[in-house]
Every structure is written in structure tokens, then in C-alpha cells.
Nucleic acid binder design. Structure first.
Lengths: 147, 147
DNA sequence: ATCGTATTATTAGATCGTCTAACAACATCG
DNA sequence: CGATGTTGTTAGACGATCTAATAATACGAT
């Protein structure tokens, strides 16, 4: 096994550990953190959309949102397009708090790249793209969900 | 955010999805899969060692091992060095089954690298090492556990 | 327009996984 | 040896998710 392949594995493990760390910062469990992650990256989502992304039922999402509302990380708002629907909106202050832990990481990642020239950056990007392709090839295709 | 940084994120997500896939192959839950992962990579481990690696209590490990024994993925054996102790030993057939899903992935990863020359491989490895360093810098240091 | 069907979010009750606490068996060290 | 620590297990509590049922609303075909 090539060193790079091993490093990729290390990064995966470190990512998991970082998520535990971030969860502690926001005092939420792993599922609730993942919900926040989606809300931060995609903006307000409906419970159904969250359920698809988290791979849990909408019943479970109801309790996820209950917990997040209780600690002030999100609010439930009416969906203007569908009177049955609900929109789960992330609280700006919570987004800010998450960002304060996330940004050093992201900046650190980008900073690593600044030490490589353009050709090297292309090599790295090309490598990572191909790794993604290998993953996708091995996985049973997951069609787009937008529910 | 640089494309490479985004790809790294994609790889993290795909890794999680791949683990779900692998868990289905072996019909085990995420925790039990992670236990198998450690047993496959490190060989037989004691319940205490598993508890440290999985971040759960030894009481929880007892039930993890109970489940894995029930489906034949591991066996409990006496620890020759300590008469209180137990060794959790992975079943060869289960290791083989896991490998049949794991190997295409690992070979695919190594294969990607074979399309790069030595200088490019160095660039890639150097990049990944630095990414690992960034993670470690952001994380509260986790000392070695060998219990 | 209206009726039947589908979808949305919630609740209630069951189940599963993990925790804390207590314990028995054994190790270790002064 | 005897006090103290460690190992793994059990019992009971709790938390998170599931299935099933339900009310409210959307939507499609006639």
C-alpha cells in the first residue's frame, strides 16, 4: 500500500475525530452536528430534506430539530411554498460559532496549497479527482435527491 | 476555497458512505463495523483495547462482541497472559469477506498513483502529509493509548 | 371544481445501543 | 501476603431511532 493511500486513510480518521471535537464545541451529538453541517452549507432545509441527507426517518428528524431548537441552534419557520411544510433555519450566532472552529481548518488547508506551484496544484487536484472517481465506481450509485 | 480542499471534503463524505456500504455487506451496525475494522488491521484485541479505539465503555464492548460472536464474525478466546482477560479474534471467513469489498478500493487507490511519475507522487504525498499536520494542529492532542 | 391519492410533519410506543454502577476474578506491588 | 488496581460482565436507566398511525395540505385525473 502506497504511503499516499495510507495518508488518505489517516485523513479520514482525523476528519471523524475533528467532527467529535466540533460536536463538543456546539454541545450536540453526532447526528445533530451533521444536521447543522448541512444547514450551514446549504441554508434552510425542510425536515424531509434533512431526513434524506442524514439517512434517518422524518420522525427522527422531528426530535433532532426539537433538540437543536432547545439549545437555540435553529428555529422552525413556516414554508411559504407549502402550508404543510416547515423550514429549519440555522441561527446566525450558531453558524458563527461553528465557523470559528471551521475556518482555521479551511484556511490551513488552503494555506498548504499555497506552497505548491500551479503544476503541482494541478497534480494534486487531478489525483484527488481520480480518488473520488474510484470511490464512486465502487459504490452502488446514489441518484440525486432533492426532495 | 480551493478545488482540492473541496475534493478532500468529498472524499471524507464518500468514505462515510463506503463504510455504510461495507456495513451492509457484513450486516453489522457502524460501531460493530468499526470494531471489525480495528480487528482486521491490528489483529486480535482485548475488550479494553477495543473500548479505547471505539470511544465507548468496556460494558458497551461486551455487547458489541456479543453481537459479533452471534453472527460469527469473531470469537472470544482466553488471554494467555492474563487469566481475567479475553482476546477478541476475527473470524478468517469474515476477514475474507470484508477484504473482497476492501481490496478493489485499495487497489483502485494505488492504481491511481501509478499514473503519476515519482516527482508527482512526492508532491501528492507531501501535500497529504501537510494536510494531516493541519488537522493535528487544530485538534486537542490525543496521546498514544496502548492499554 | 372535486375526489382520490400522495406528501409533510408530528406523535406514540417499541427497539436498539450506550451509559453508570456494582461486582467477581485476577494481577501487581509494597 | 495483603491492599489496591485492573479486567470483563451484568443490571438497570437513558437516549436516539424505528414503525405505524394521524391530521393537514398538495396534486392529478376526470
Amino acid at each position: 500500500m502506497h504511503p499516499a493511500t495510507t495518508l488518505l486513510r489517516d485523513i479520514a480518521d482525523l476528519t471523524t475525530e475533528f467532527e467529535r471535537h466540533l460536536g463538543r464545541q456546539l454541545t450536540v451529538n453526532p447526528t445533530d452536528l451533521e444536521a447543522m453541517d448541512h444547514l450551514i452549507r446549504e441554508g434552510a432545509l425542510s425536515p424531509t430534506e434533512l431526513a434524506n441527507r442524514l439517512h434517518i426517518t422524518t420522525a427522527a428528524v422531528t426530535t433532532v430539530v426539537d433538540r437543536l431548537v432547545a439549545v437555540g441552534h435553529v428555529s422552525r419557520e413556516a414554508n411559504p411554498r407549502d402550508r404543510r411544510g416547515v423550514l429549519v433555519v440555522p441561527a446566525p450566532e450558531s453558524v458563527r460559532r461553528a465557523m470559528s472552529t471551521l475556518m482555521p481548518m479551511i484556511l490551513g488547508m488552503d494555506d498548504v496549497l499555497s506552497d505548491f506551484n500551479d503544476a503541482e496544484k494541478d497534480t494534486i487536484t487531478s489525483y484527488l479527482s481520480r480518488v473520488v472517481a474510484v470511490y464512486r465506481a465502487q459504490l452502488p450509485s446514489k441518484p440525486a435527491d432533492s426532495a
